[in-house]
Amino acid sequence: MSVFTRYANGFFFTPVALGRVAAMRFLAGLFVWIEWWAYKPFIIQHRFLPEDLYQPLFIGRILPIPAPNYWIVTGTLVVMLAAALPVMFGYRPRLFGWILFIAYFEWMLIYNSYGKVDHASFGFMVLLLVLCMMPEARWGDREHLSPRVGWGFNLVQIAVVCTYFLSTWSKFRYGGLEWANSGVFTWAIIRRGTPFSDWMLDFPLLLNAAQWGMIAFELLTPLVLFVYPWKRIQYSIVAFFYAFHVAVFAALTISFLPHLFAMACFLPLERIDPKDLARRARAKLKGGKDTPRRGAPEPAAEMETTG
């Protein structure tokens, strides 16, 4: 077996704790509720649009999906929100996971079929699909490891990286190499600038350098996949990704929130146990001694030393 094959098998089938599945299911359902209310509340307004404005994506032209109307848009939202709740709390997660994925798929088809296609939800849609095929899991479970879970989350990680990497391909496809020397960032700041970015309009060379930096950043993002054996390095890169999006939001108020939720699958969320955290908080409030959670190993006794 070649070194590349061993490395690829190690990446794709690295066992991951089931506790991360429970955490990601909660985050996925939580985002669905956040999206319709705060992130993209305007999608529900599509129920009032005339059908002749509907320009379905390729997948919408292949599948026999009717044009959105009042009842289709409203019904899709109701089903999506209703399915998100049991997924969040681990009740029949596969059944309701499939319902949630299908409803969210239609929700995104409605959103992207009126002239604007948003790539920020690609990784999140892959996450919803993967979670449908994950086993049942509970918070804080670090003992049970599954190569299938590792395989699924690695697919989400690849989708997250493709969101960055293919973005550069799209820039070059439609704007050519001149995109990096164009006035894209200048136009963006004029249109959506904030006090954190308006000052950059006085430094056009800095804006061009930032555009080249953006391209370099997006092309180098696949590195986060190849450093998987060195978790501290991988977590540092993921932290940089999050910091990058915080900076973009501060400068241009552009948010990639579904992408950020999907990117959480890189993180060791299996270490989080809400019940254990609540127990510790109650113990601190009462001023009592913290007791180990059920099933946790007893602390080792101190060894006596002799002179």
Score class of each variant (00 low, 15 high):
residue 254 I to W: 15
residue 14 T to D: 12
residue 98 W to K: 00
residue 34 I to P: 00
residue 28 A to T: 04
residue 208 N to A: 05
residue 235 Y to H: 09
residue 11 F to E: 00
residue 183 G to F: 11
residue 143 E to M: 14
residue 48 F to V: 02
residue 84 A to P: 01
residue 249 F to S: 09
residue 65 I to H: 08
residue 223 L to P: 15
residue 222 P to Y: 04
residue 252 L to P: 14
residue 233 I to L: 14
residue 88 M to E: 10
residue 271 R to N: 06
residue 222 P to V: 05
residue 97 G to H: 04
residue 176 G to R: 05
residue 71 W to L: 11
residue 246 V to T: 11
residue 216 A to G: 07
residue 301 A to M: 09
residue 142 R to K: 13
residue 188 A to L: 08
residue 263 M to E: 14
residue 241 F to S: 03
residue 113 S to C: 05
residue 100 L to C: 12
residue 7 Y to R: 10
residue 233 I to R: 07
residue 54 Y to S: 09
residue 263 M to K: 00
residue 133 M to N: 15
residue 282 R to Y: 01
residue 102 I to M: 07
residue 13 F to G: 08
residue 26 F to D: 01
residue 177 L to I: 12
residue 6 R to P: 02
residue 30 L to F: 15
residue 97 G to P: 15
residue 12 F to H: 05
residue 120 A to L: 08
residue 117 V to G: 08
residue 259 H to M: 11
residue 9 N to V: 07
residue 199 W to H: 14
residue 164 Y to E: 00
residue 296 A to V: 06
residue 261 F to T: 01
residue 297 P to K: 14
residue 215 I to H: 03
residue 270 E to I: 06
residue 184 V to G: 04
residue 268 P to L: 09
residue 30 L to R: 09
residue 220 L to N: 04
residue 30 L to N: 07
residue 143 E to G: 14
residue 14 T to R: 06
residue 101 F to E: 09
residue 54 Y to K: 14
residue 254 I to H: 11
residue 217 F to S: 07
residue 179 W to E: 02
residue 293 R to A: 15
residue 148 R to K: 14
residue 68 P to R: 01
residue 279 R to D: 02
residue 301 A to R: 10
residue 88 M to I: 02
residue 116 K to W: 15
residue 116 K to A: 15
residue 198 D to A: 12
residue 94 R to C: 08
residue 149 V to K: 00
residue 263 M to N: 09
residue 32 V to F: 00
residue 165 F to L: 10
residue 295 G to H: 03
residue 21 V to L: 06
residue 127 L to N: 03
residue 284 K to Y: 15
residue 4 F to V: 06
residue 194 T to D: 11
residue 179 W to D: 04
residue 97 G to A: 00
residue 108 M to T: 11
residue 16 V to K: 01
residue 184 V to D: 05
residue 227 V to Q: 04
residue 103 A to E: 03
residue 149 V to H: 02
residue 279 R to F: 02
residue 65 I to M: 13
residue 197 S to C: 05
residue 52 D to Q: 15
residue 29 G to D: 03
residue 99 I to N: 03
residue 305 T to M: 14
residue 39 Y to W: 14
residue 175 G to M: 11
residue 258 P to R: 01
residue 91 Y to Q: 11
residue 93 P to N: 00
residue 103 A to G: 04
residue 76 T to H: 10
residue 50 P to E: 04
residue 53 L to T: 14
residue 152 G to T: 02
residue 113 S to K: 03
residue 165 F to S: 04
residue 75 G to P: 04
residue 195 P to N: 02
residue 40 K to S: 03
residue 43 I to R: 01
residue 180 A to T: 09
residue 82 A to M: 07
residue 28 A to I: 02
residue 151 W to C: 13
residue 115 G to Q: 06
residue 141 D to W: 15
residue 13 F to I: 05
residue 141 D to R: 15
